[in-house]
């Protein structure tokens, strides 16, 4: 940071940091801690029984599995979209670039009903796939499509700036030394993009495992088959099974914390690298 002993010169450190911590504690930290307090009301055996119930395990498998598939597909197509937007020129590029942000700004419930309508049997795409025996809405493929929608901007927007700052000299050097284009991409470009790509994937994955609004409409919500973990929390709450809901939530929270930690570590590494290159 520029400016050495700025604590003395600029005002407002105590009040701004104090307010930040107070607000975060009140809105985020204390309520979140409630999840763990509530979980402690269960004995270990009860907690274990609640989170390893077959229906709960199936919901984890569906949530994590769909989020993983969606994250991987987004990693591939997100990289492709970022590449095309940074490297090539074509008409309507600005508009396409804005389109990538739609999933950030569009309410999830709207995405949910729209995707369901398109991919249902009678929908624009569903009706094309139905004669081929492919069903998307009300299957795990539908859940994955919703999570692809939700996660896409995370990958594009983390890869794009890195690709923009990429030193083309390295590619040119590789090409001059006789490397073919794909080999240059694989050996020179991809390794440089990897931290950003991983961060984008992790962000999309983390968002995907918790996603609710866009998924509930397209998933069909069949227990053991297309019931995601957040929906099961919802169902338990409606049955006044607060402890059961909390136990499922506690497991999901721990996974989210670990993912957040990994994402932050990746981002610090990227920042350090960027600072070292500058």
């Amino acid at each position: 940071m520029k400016g050495s002993n700025n604590k003395k010169v600029l005002p407002g450190f105590g009040i701004s940091l104090g307010f930040t911590l107070f607000y975060l504690s009140l809105i985020v930290l204390i309520p979140l801690a409630g999840i763990f307090f509530k979980s402690f009301e269960l004995t270990w055996a009860e907690f274990w029984a609640a989170v390893t119930n077959p229906r709960v395990l199936a919901s984890y498998r569906i949530s994590f599995g769909s989020a993983l598939w969606a994250g991987l597909i987004n990693a591939v197509f997100g990289l492709l979209i970022a590449w095309v937007l940074v490297r090539y020129r074509f008409p309507g590029k600005k508009l396409i670039d804005s389109l990538v942000d739609i999933p950030f700004a569009l309410p999830t419930a709207v995405a949910g009903i729209a995707l369901t309508t398109i991919y249902a049997k009678s929908g624009w795409i569903g009706s094309l796939l139905d004669p081929l025996g492919i069903k998307i809405a009300y299957t795990q493929a539908g859940i994955t499509i919703a999570l692809i929608f939700i996660g896409l901007p995370f990958v594009v927007r983390t890869v794009q700036p890195v690709l923009q700052d990429f030193e083309r000299e390295m590619e040119d050097a590789a090409a001059t030394l006789g490397a073919y284009r794909f080999r240059t991409f694989r050996k020179v470009i991809l390794p440089e993009l990897m931290p950003a790509l991983l961060t984008g994937f992790a962000l999309a994955f983390a968002r995907g495992i918790g996603e609710y609004g866009s998924v509930v409409f397209i998933s069909g919500n069949m227990p053991m088959k297309t019931e995601i973990a957040p929906l099961l929390i919802m169902t338990k709450l409606e049955q006044y099974d607060y402890a059961g809901a909390t136990a499922i939530a506690a497991v999901m929270l721990i996974v989210s914390f670990i993912l957040l930690l990994i994402i932050n570590l990746l981002q610090w590494r990227m920042q350090r690298k960027a600072a070292a290159n500058a």
């Binding site: 985020v28 309520p31 979140l32 409630g34 999840i35 999830t108 983390a206 968002r207 495992i209 918790g210 996603e211 609710y212 609004g213 973990a229 957040p230 929906l231 929390i233 919802m234 709450l237 809901a245 909390t246 939530a249 999901m252 929270l253 989210s256 914390f257 993912l259 957040l260």
Partner: peptide
């Protein structure tokens, strides 16, 4: 809050 499922945000 980015990493927490919205359903969990309601639950807390």
């Amino acid at each position: 809050p980015f990493a927490v499922s919205p359903v969990i945000a309601g639950l807390i």
